[in-house]
Each structure stands twice: as C-alpha cells, then as structure tokens.
Simulated assay, not measured.
Amino acid sequence: MDVEAIRVRDLVRDVVTEVAPEELPLVAGLAGFDDAGAVRRLGGRDRRRETLGFGLGEAAALVTPVVWLAVDQAAQRIVGTWMDNGITRTGTALRRLFRRPVSEPVVIPPLTREQLALVRESVLTMAAQRGLEAERAAVIADAVVTRLVLVETEADGTPELPGSDTPDGPERPDRPDEL
C-alpha cells in the first residue's frame, strides 16, 4: 500500500473503532473476504449461505455496512475502476475455483476537496438508505472525511499533532533543554 493511500478496509476499521467499537467483531469477520466479497455480503446480495435465517439486511442500522459500502462506491467513482462484467465474472469463477480471494484491495488515493465532499455525501446517502438518524450519519461521515484528510496529511509529511516528528522533517532536539 502506498504511503499516501489507504485501503477501504483499513479506513472502515479506523472509523468503526472511533464511532462504533461494538461492531469491531463484524469488521474482523469480514477480514477473511476480499473487498468485493465483503461488499457483496454487506450489500445484502449474497444470501445463499445464510445459516441463521437472517442476515445483515435485518441489522440495517449498523455503521460498518454504511461506511464500507459508501466509501467503496465513492472510491470506485473517484478512481474510475468500475470493472467490466466479463472481468467480474472471471474473478468470481476464479474465487470459486481456488476458494480464496483473487481481487486487489480497493485503495483510496489522496483526495481533493470536491472528492472529499463526494465521499461525505455518499456516506450520508448510504446512512439514510440504511435507516440511520441524520445526526448519527453526520458523525459517521465526518469521521470518514477526517480519516481521509489525516491520511493525506501523513503522506505530505505534515505532523498530525504539533511537536510530532516526521521522517522527512528537520532534525529536532531529543530533549526540550536543547532548544
């Protein structure tokens, strides 16, 4: 993974840790799937193997599907990596054949202000579709955008907090008395 980019699954984990830590077992459970498989499961299109008689569709107010689906959707639009149906079918066939993920993780590069606004709007829209309250949706959307901005800040070498060291920054004294 590039320093200036973040994988969707890492962003989801970071945001869920911040706004809904009780959902971390769900995020951990999705770690065994590739990104396309996780999106299928969270989107409710993969119902054939539900052994409990219910699925994520019944848990519509979860944060994890909102963040993952919205960010994945926005990343696909921004990066322009919508896959051709033939490629998707081939990837699905290979997954079935080898019983393991074959797709590359979705990665979000540094974004412009307009693209960050698109991601925020995507999260708000997905949250509304999933039945989250507007106030809760705004908190989630803000957490997603904040994390994306922090990734860009880290990539630029700008310290996250005043006084933090950066690998490429000027040498700083080890002790305050050396100032």
Rank of each mutant, 00 (worst) to 15 (best):
T112I: 04
L132C: 10
R120M: 00
R147A: 13
R49E: 15
E160Q: 15
D174F: 06
Q115N: 07
P25D: 10
L24K: 08
T92F: 14
A141F: 01
P21S: 07
V39E: 11
V144T: 06
N85H: 05
V79W: 02
F33V: 02
D10C: 06
L24V: 06
W82S: 15
D177K: 02
E18G: 00
L132A: 10
I78E: 04
A134C: 12
T125Y: 07
T90R: 11
V79F: 03
P110D: 06
L94S: 01
R136A: 12
T92A: 15
V106S: 00
L42A: 03
A134G: 13
T92L: 14
A28C: 08
V67F: 02
P21H: 09
T153L: 13
G53H: 11
I140S: 01
E171W: 15
R48D: 14
D35H: 09
P173D: 06
A134H: 14
A59V: 08
L116D: 12
N85G: 07
E133W: 05
R100H: 09
P176F: 01
Q73S: 12
R48S: 14
Q76Y: 08
V71W: 02
V149Y: 00
L26V: 02
G32E: 06
T88H: 03
L161K: 10
V149W: 00
I108S: 00
D177T: 00
Q73N: 10
G91T: 00
D46V: 15
R47I: 10
D72T: 13
R41Q: 06
R100V: 15
F98I: 05
A70G: 14
E23W: 07
L69S: 04
G29H: 02
V107Q: 04
T158F: 05
F98C: 02
N85E: 12
G157W: 04
D156G: 11
D84C: 01
E18W: 04
E135I: 13
L24Q: 09
E160H: 12
A70E: 08
G163W: 12
D35F: 04
D35N: 12
Q76F: 06
D168V: 14
Q73A: 13
M83E: 05
A36K: 09
W82I: 05
E133T: 03
L97Q: 07
P159H: 14
E50D: 07
G169Y: 09
S103V: 10
M1G: 13
V71H: 06
P25Y: 05
V149F: 03
V15Y: 08
T125Q: 08
A137E: 11
F54M: 07
R48Q: 12
V66H: 00
T17W: 00
A74W: 00
S122T: 04
Q129L: 11
A155P: 00
A155Y: 01
L132V: 06
Q76A: 13
A143S: 11
L69Q: 05
Q129R: 12
E104F: 05
V123R: 05
Q76I: 08
A20L: 08
R113G: 13
T146C: 01
P170D: 09
E50F: 05
Q73L: 08
